[in-house]
């Protein structure tokens, strides 16, 4: 009982420090691409935290949305906002014509 709860506390502590570190790095790393990837990792760790808190429905939704859909959305936004040099400018040109 005691050993179990101390293992639980250790797990909580590790998860919390990873979560806070990922959140901080997401908002402080200079490269936006790295920030988005760190945010996806943040979503996955957060899903583990929901499972720790017995909120399984929320964990499922977080994996599918927080890590999957939001990550894809932000990555595609990044590709549109900051295209690599020399390619991918077509989209903006199309928009200028509207």
């Amino acid at each position: 009982m005691d050993a179990l709860s101390s293992i639980g506390w250790a797990l909580d502590g590790v998860l919390a420090s990873i979560l806070l570190w990922l959140a901080w790095r997401t908002l402080s790393s200079p490269a936006l691409f790295r920030a988005v990837v760190l945010f996806i990792a943040f979503g996955l760790v957060l899903a583990l935290v929901w499972a720790r808190l017995y909120a399984v429905d929320v964990a499922l939704a977080e994996v599918a949305i927080g890590a999957g859909v939001t990550g894809a959305l932000l990555l595609s936004a990044l590709a549109r906002l900051e295209p690599p040099m020399g390619r991918g400018r077509r989209g903006d040109k199309d928009d200028q014509e509207f």
């Binding site: 599918a64 999957g68 894809a72």
Partner: peptide
């Protein structure tokens, strides 16, 4: 959850 999978 199912809807977000479909979104995926």
């Amino acid at each position: 959850q199912a809807g977000s999978l479909l979104g995926g």
